[in-house]
Design a protein around this nucleic acid. Sequence first.
DNA 1: AGCTTGAGTTCCTTGAGGGAACCCCAAGTG
DNA 2: CACTTGGGGTTCCCTCAAGGAACTCAAGCT
Lengths: 151, 151
Amino acid sequence: MQRTNFSELAACSIARTLDVIGEPWSPLILRDVWAGISRFEQLQADLGISRKVLTERLNHLVEEGVLERHPYDRRPRYEYVLTEKGTELVDMLMAMTRWGDKWLAGQAGPPVLYRHHACGEISSVDLRCAHCGEPMHANDVDLLEGPGATR
Amino acid sequence: MQRTNFSELAACSIARTLDVIGEPWSPLILRDVWAGISRFEQLQADLGISRKVLTERLNHLVEEGVLERHPYDRRPRYEYVLTEKGTELVDMLMAMTRWGDKWLAGQAGPPVLYRHHACGEISSVDLRCAHCGEPMHANDVDLLEGPGATR
DNA sequence: AGCTTGAGTTCCTTGAGGGAACCCCAAGTG
DNA sequence: CACTTGGGGTTCCCTCAAGGAACTCAAGCT
């Protein structure tokens, strides 16, 4: 495929993030690990991904510090668990889920529901300004050059 | 590459969303269009993407209703603009940006800053429960089967 | 010793991405 | 009118990553 290394393209946090989880399958692997599907065989069976590519993806995600390998047996058997860095990536997947629920689920409704611990209600994420708490969407911001702008 | 069609894998809003923007380049195209880089030549120059793949991606994004083609000349010249559906996808990219800013920007700091119209401050998105307004992150929810669970 | 199981590795085939050249069409210019 | 320019794509070939199936390896179990 001769995949471009996005982060060399420009200083861009989206491009950099894509270098971590932009490959096909990576987001779905994280979703599965989050949902408790955490072993090689389980992941392979659930996703139908080729074993070779699954190995590559898991190694890459471990190298990036998104997943950790935890042995669960004296035999060489491992469980993959989310690091803090990985858990925060799942936050992004929740925003992705919200969009898919809204625009792609159709009349069948969303396939998965989130129950929020704090209020006990079925809900979804809402993007708010970390500073003032008001809604913060694509049309609510101006883009400015940041300190890391030059590459 | 023989890419798998993710949404046939399971009823999953993440998989479905990946069928819309999971291909390499698609998120970066949306970012550029959002930032005002909206014509074919501009996109090609900014991203360094091959013209063939750019054509494919733009057609796909238009078919999916994420972008619209707007003629800007009596000659056949087009601008690509975000639909409402596409604009809400950019919200997800903002969550992605936040993660990249936090975990990948390093000491140089984030390359792009967002100034929130409502409060005028440089800020970033924060995920909140759409129901109660409290923070809602990966560890703050239980997953339940939804109405569209079966495929 | 032989069987099983989880977790990979090897090898071949296929098809998507990269790159460069080419094409089309409307305007502008002399 | 012919000639150039420039945006927006096609076409072609080549390479390399994903799929798929078979193979390996290292513990335990019987």
